[in-house]
Computed example of a mutant assay.
Amino acid sequence: MTDSTKTKRGKRERLVAAASRVLHEQGVEKTTLADIARVAEVPLGNVYYYFKTKDQLVEAAIDAHALGFRAMTASLDLRAGGPQDRLKALLRGWVEQREVTARYGCPTGTLCSELDKRTDGLDRAAAEVMRLLIDYAERQFGSMGRSDSRELAIALVAAYQGISLLTNTFRDPELMTGECRRLERWIDSLA
């Protein structure tokens, strides 16, 4: 790989990472390409080399969320024990992000909520990331022998999204800590 190729790849990756962060912190509508370029430390004019529109950059950020989620769940599958352990490790990961959630909300949930008001395809792309979460939880509950695995997965994700909203609304990260402890007990009760 040439230095030029590394630089191009590095700039694009920095733009996508910056977009994910800034879109979470400011929201899609308030975020400008200049905001993203500044955080990525890329000249604004270079943004257009990689992304012709802001929506293309938003879509790349959504794709990055999906990739990150897949990588995280693959890691859980490798290092966590059985399905109960994997679900509880997922909860602990959420608790680790409670300060960020208190300040900005759930990255995926807030993006889904904001993009849901649009009908340009970005709404469905964001919903797919949420579907990945539900599908993962459903597989874990199914591995626990639960015939109601889809309903349980939806209940788990709904509880997480609800506590994320309350954690953000009240700027109280300990709300998430308490709810995740309750969800761990709930998961144990289902075995």
Rank of each mutant, 00 (worst) to 15 (best):
E114S: 07
D188M: 11
Q26L: 15
L183C: 07
M1T: 14
W186R: 09
K52D: 01
Y136V: 02
G93Q: 01
S143H: 10
N168I: 14
A102C: 03
L175P: 15
A19G: 13
K117T: 08
N46F: 07
I163M: 10
E128T: 13
A102V: 05
E59P: 15
R171V: 13
R12A: 14
I62D: 09
L44F: 12
G162Y: 07
V129G: 03
L165P: 08
A191K: 09
T2W: 11
Q84N: 00
L190T: 14
L91N: 02
R118L: 14
G178Q: 14
I163P: 05
Q56M: 11
G27S: 11
K8T: 08
V100G: 11
E29G: 15
A19Y: 06
I134C: 03
E99V: 09
Y48M: 06
Y104I: 05
A89I: 03
T53L: 03
D77W: 01
A80S: 12
S20F: 04
A37M: 05
G162N: 11
L67D: 08
N168E: 15
L132P: 00
Q97W: 01
A159S: 13
A61E: 05
D188T: 08
Q161F: 12
G82W: 00
S75G: 03
T119M: 13
G82V: 01
G145P: 02
D85F: 02
G145T: 00
V58W: 01
K30N: 11
A102Q: 05
I163V: 15
R14H: 11
Y136L: 07
E138T: 02
M176L: 15
R21D: 09
T7S: 12
L115A: 08
T108S: 04
L57N: 03
Q97K: 03
R9C: 04
G82F: 01
R9M: 10
Q97R: 01
A137Q: 03
I134R: 10
L57V: 06
L132V: 03
T31V: 08
L15D: 07
M1H: 15
R14Y: 03
R86H: 01
A61G: 14
I154H: 11
A80V: 09
V129P: 04
C180F: 14
C106N: 07
D135N: 09
Q140H: 00
E179I: 15
A60C: 11
A60L: 09
